[in-house]
Nucleic acid binder design. Structure first.
Length: 461
RNA sequence: GGACCCGUAGUGUAGCGGCUAACACACUUCCCUGUCACGGAAGAAAUCACCGGUUCGAAUCCGGCCGGGUCCGCCA
């Protein structure tokens, strides 16, 4: 039969196929039943398309369609018809056309949904949203978040490749638990102890001595016993590191370039998604201000009267306030804060020669919180050795790392961007969990741990 | 780890000492040939998280417990 040869048409392509016979496949979003006339909204990866099922066209098709419910997977063969002027739906990409069904095939049925997926906005509480993650991710507004996230990553990659960086892939099973202050997950490694990497830091530094300029999009793990709206136990870290810097400010220049490029690319390539989510991205038109921590604290003191001038870091409300300040100065809520205290930063951070109590490190605060963290690293072997000891670690644990420095390492540094956090902030999402496909936190690994615990206890009885 | 707040049909909420516990969407049945988050009619669905106390009377007040959320600390 020649009919079988019909290739699949995506719903977005139907607008150019008026009068043609097409085969579309997808999920049923909604069914509107008008007695004898049935409308289906079919969702595929490109868009939605309206299907019209008319018993006068085919009684057989009508009989099949009567059983169709939301989220059924169906194949529809039919003719693309131009809609009359008054029936055009301006809110729909394919609103000028519809498909008159000649054949309907149910490919996969769906159980009754636990909530209404046809709503324009899923009005669910976070635990419900995550308990049904495989279903809630199907919703167009939630899909849009991750389409945008994908653009963020590809933009990070593209801008660094243009700057002659090489993409690398580093392990997440690591032998050392003592890079920074963060808590780590221990792993039973053939009876030995290993850990889930808290960042790709040490490996990307090593790789500077091979490729000079490297970047990686890596998973990172933090076993922090805390539950907040901006932390995950597993997150994606976009890391860059490069050598032969002439000044540590080169690092901020590069970070600024990356962030500007990410925002620009999302606003260019995700117009539809941004529109769906009702988000307008900030524009960075002026250079991002650069303040020493002490200067930032002074501004905050003068602005608010709250005196944090002797704190070693900014707290979340300080971060919000200094972003507001930056917005007043430049029109965009972005600001570099530099020179954090040496003892608050990891062992590999380069102290400022002029004032060794402080480091050549920076955070880029964007839209109220920390987006990027980076700095110059210690590339001198003896100094690095000294720091490892001072930070209470044993050089033996860092043998592979130290090797790179023992045999020649140029001045270098880099930065890291938390993918879920930047996604959250760009889109004004309240909780970082919504910016992760399958978020891991202290209370959940897909399933709620409290539920798993209960089931285990029951099984033991 | 500390502080505060919340637990009511499948979902989201209202009710905050005197109900047969309300509304919206979803669900079931029926009506509807131009809807597009269709519309209309009817229906099923909640021992008001759980345990105890106060009270003539508790979804409502108190204590405990379990679950969830927000803020702080720590961090990306």
């Amino acid at each position: 039969m020649s009919e079988e040869k019909l290739e699949r048409t995506l719903s977005s392509e139907t607008v150019n196929k008026v009068g043609q016979k097409v085969l579309v496949k997808g999920w049923v979003k909604t069914r509107r039943d008008h007695g004898k006339l049935i409308f289906l909204d079919l969702r595929d990866r490109s868009s939605l398309i309206q299907i019209v099922i008319n018993p006068h066209v085919s009684e057989e098709v009508y009989k099949v369609a009567v059983d169709i419910k939301p989220e059924f997977v169906v194949e529809i063969t039919g003719e693309v018809k131009q809609r009359p002027e008054k029936l055009i739906n301006k809110n729909l990409l394919t609103g000028t056309v519809e498909i008159e069904a000649h054949k309907v095939k149910i490919i996969s049925k769906a159980e009754t949904l636990p909530f209404d997926m046809g709503q324009e906005t899923l009005n669910l509480e976070l635990p419900t949203l995550l308990d049904h993650r495989s279903l809630t991710l199907r919703h167009p507004k939630i899909q849009a978040i991750f389409k945008i996230q994908q653009t963020i990553v590809s933009s990070f990659r593209d801008v660094l490749k243009e700057e002659d960086f090489t993409e690398i892939f580093v392990p997440t099973l690591v032998p050392i638990a003592t890079e920074g202050g963060a808590e780590v997950f221990p792993v039973n490694y053939y009876g030995h102890k290993a850990y889930l990497a808290q960042s790709p830091q040490l490996y990307k530094q090593i790789m500077v001595s091979i490729f000079e300029r490297v970047f990686t999009v890596a998973h990172a793990y933090r076993a922090e016993p805390s539950v907040t709206t901006r932390h995950l136990s597993e997150y994606v870290s976009m890391d860059a590191e490069f050598g032969f810097i002439s000044s540590w400010t080169d690092l901020m220049d590069m970070a600024e370039k990356v962030i500007i490029s990410i925002i620009k690319k999302v606003s260019q390539e995700n117009k539809e998604e941004l529109n769906l989510l009702g988000v307008v991205l900030p524009e960075i038109t002026k250079p991002i201000p650069r303040l020493k921590l002490k200067e930032a604290q002074k501004i905050l003191f003068e602005k608010t009267g709250i005196d944090h001038r002797s704190d070693p870091d900014l707290d979340p409300s300080d971060e919000k306030e200094i972003c507001r300040w930056a917005e007043e100065q430049t029109g965009a809520p972005f600001v570099f804060v530099t020179h954090y205290p040496t003892k608050k930063r990891p062992f590999y951070t380069m102290p400022d020669r002029q004032d060794p109590e402080y480091t050549l490190s920076f955070d880029l605060l964007g839209i109220n919180e920390e987006w990027v963290t980076g700095g110059q690293r210690i590339n001198d072997y003896d100094m690095l050795l000294d720091h490892i000891k001072k930070w209470g670690n044993s050089p033996q644990n860092f043998e592979i790392y130290l090797q790179a420095f023992r045999y020649g390492m140029p001045p270098e540094g880099g930065f890291a961007i938390g993918l879920e956090r930047i996604t959250k902030d760009i889109l004004g999402i309240a909780n970082i969990r919504e910016a992760s496909l399958f978020p891991r936190d202290m209370e959940r690994v897909d399933e709620r741990l409290s539920v798993i615990d209960k089931e285990e206890a029951k099984a033991k009885q």
